[in-house]
């Protein structure tokens, strides 16, 4: 049986993302990759923690951060996590259109998060002259938050690519694992953000 046929209720396995060998590999491979990503971000967090007070006379975290914006960004990203859960829920019920819809909302939320992040960086650079060359704190801040932002960019491109690619083909055992792995990756981005808003922004405001 080819994996590329759309699924109907009769051919629908319990979990289409893990019904094929390729699906299982992708599922496990992505999780293992996330294990490595944990260490990757830990190194960036570590660097940030070691350098967060090394402002070299430049602006400090208290001067820069505004919690309202960060709170909004957090809400956007958390909600996008929930919408991707909704999308996977519809995948399991073999409702392709609703799945695409919810993933579409996820992409929009991700894009608005990204927009706010770009706005935030632009604000620091133009209003405070705070760049990654300003101080070790600046380098570490942009490295950590920028790395996360890079992950968001990559995730969004990935999502849009598979959504466009499969828009007319419907759900199949070939593409279900791709959506599922994306979902896991997206949650992980959220996990990292939870620590970023806590460690970078909230602790940065406390001092």
């Amino acid at each position: 049986m080819s994996h590329d046929h759309s699924l109907n209720p009769e051919t629908m396995p319990e979990d289409p993302a893990k019904a094929t060998m390729e699906g299982k590999h992708k599922f496990l491979g992505l999780w293992i990759f996330l294990g490595g990503e944990t260490v990757l971000f830990a190194c960036l967090f570590g660097t940030y923690l070691a350098l967060r007070n090394s402002t070299a006379g430049g602006p400090s975290s208290q001067d820069l951060f505004g919690l309202e914006l960060v709170f909004l960004m957090t809400l956007l990203l958390l909600t996008s996590s929930l919408t991707s859960v909704y999308a996977i829920y519809h995948m399991k019920n073999n409702n392709f259109k609703k799945m695409q819809l919810w993933f579409g909302i996820t992409a929009l939320l991700g894009l608005s998060f990204l927009g706010l992040e770009i706005y935030e960086f632009a604000h620091y650079i133009t209003d405070y002259g705070f760049t990654f060359r300003s101080s070790a704190f600046g380098s570490a801040f942009y490295a950590l938050v920028g790395f996360h932002g890079g992950h968001v960019v990559f995730g969004l491109s990935w999502l849009i690519a598979i959504m466009v690619r499969n828009a007319k083909r419907g759900l199949s055992l070939y593409n279900a694992p791709k959506y599922n792995t994306f979902g896991l990756y997206w949650h992980f981005i959220d996990v990292v953000w939870v620590f970023i808003f806590t460690v970078v922004y909230l602790m940065g405001m406390v001092g």
Partner: peptide, 25 residues
């Protein structure tokens, strides 16, 4: 990966991770 990334930015783009003068370590 992270370490090489920091080194790359310090050498090529003027960041200050290892630059003592700007508070690096």
């Amino acid at each position: 990966t992270v370490n090489l990334f920091l080194m790359m930015f310090d050498r090529m783009f003027g960041t200050a991770f290892f630059d003592i003068g700007l508070g690096g370590n």
